[in-house]
Design a protein around this nucleic acid. Structure first.
Length: 223
DNA sequence: GAACGGATTGACT
DNA sequence: GTCAATCCGTTCC
């Protein structure tokens, strides 16, 4: 009852389908990813949490994107593949950042996962951090997400639809209509006027916790 | 073979 | 709120 295996099994059954990632509008996909579940199995240890912050990167026409102007290199290649794969790259030489590849082959759109409220594997996460989790502070920040969930650049190219190492699920956690706010992206001053685009989506922590409490997966005695 | 620079973080006031 | 450390991978010569 409420066993870890049972919950992971449930999250596996409710994976986001292939079609979800083929969406033509990466900004809308970015918004919709708030409330979805990030599940990872790294070093044989499961962790999972609710996504509460994302940013859209709109490929060739977006000056903030690594694929701006059709830039296609070894690093950006995965973004040109079909949606539903992970794009993980190293930032500032230290932080791995997790992106979800969106759209059809040849269209290098992606969504950066910037915030997650963890609910499975808290002990694993605290071991990785070497300290206790601090809410809500530890939930926001793209480098924090990958550290907590054991996601390194080795996860680059992972299949989110059929792979066993990392995936996304719909666990019935949905933001209220007005609860996800849009704003400019972080750390993209180099992108000129594109830095002002409202491609960043944040789900307020208190509001997210309210919705999480309501979801079936989180009811006492579930399973 | 080497320069470049960053989709950040955490410490500090 | 401000600010500097950070260091590898990517890119191009």
């Amino acid at each position: 009852m409420g066993s870890l295996d049972g919950i992971i099994d449930e999250l596996d059954k409710h994976r986001l389908p292939f079609d979800f990632y083929q969406g033509a509008d990466v900004v809308e996909v970015s918004r919709q990813l708030n409330g979805k579940i990030l599940v990872s199995a790294s070093q044989g240890l499961y962790t999972a949490g609710v996504i509460v912050e994302t940013e859209a990167y709109a490929g060739e026409s977006d000056k903030a994107s690594h694929a701006y102007g059709g830039r296609r290199t070894g690093r950006t290649e995965i973004m040109y593949q079909e949606g539903g794969h992970a794009y993980v790259y190293l930032c500032y030489g230290i932080h791995a950042l997790l992106n979800v590849v969106v759209n059809v082959p040849g269209v290098p759109h992606a969504v950066l996962i910037r915030g997650v409220i963890p609910f499975i594997g808290k002990q694993t996460i605290e071991t990785r951090l070497n300290r206790k989790l601090k809410f809500p502070n530890d939930c926001y920040g793209p480098g924090k997400v990958t550290k907590q969930h054991g996601i390194s650049t080795r996860f680059n190219g992972e299949d989110l639809v059929a792979g066993q190492n990392v995936w996304l699920a719909d666990a019935g956690v949905y933001p209220g209509v007005m609860e996800v706010s849009a704003g400019p992206r972080v750390g993209v001053d180099y992108a000129g006027e594109d830095a002002q685009l409202p491609y960043r989506f944040i789900w307020n922590y208190m509001a997210a916790m309210e919705e999480i409490k309501k979801a079936r997966l989180f009811q006492p005695g579930f399973r």
